[in-house]
Amino acid sequence: MDKGLKLLIVDDFATMRKVIRNILKQLGYENIVEAEDGSIALRVLKSQKIDLVISDWNMPNMTGLELLKAVRADEELKVTPFLMVTAEALQENVVAAVKAGVSNYIVKPFTAEAMNEKLQKILG
């Protein structure tokens, strides 16, 4: 898998962005950009080439689900791989994310191995 891919982490908690960045670094990914919510992420996606979005669900301004829908509705962004990271493991959330076209879904808490497995499924 290409470790030079540019990954976008979207989470309103700075600490959680650091946790995910730390895990991605352990997995060999160094080309990482961050956004604090869905609306900022959308601006980042429109201004630079992003190979994969890793987004939290619950965020102010624009949630992860709203961001996913906006990405899938955008002609230029719609094929961007999208991994949802959330503490919301309830069945209705999974169904909503799948309906909106999520590439895969990882539930907090997770290990670096679990993250690697999801990335391989999406990018491999």
Partner: peptide
Amino acid sequence: MVSGSARK
């Protein structure tokens, strides 16, 4: 996360 995991 503890709340999410327990609620699951």
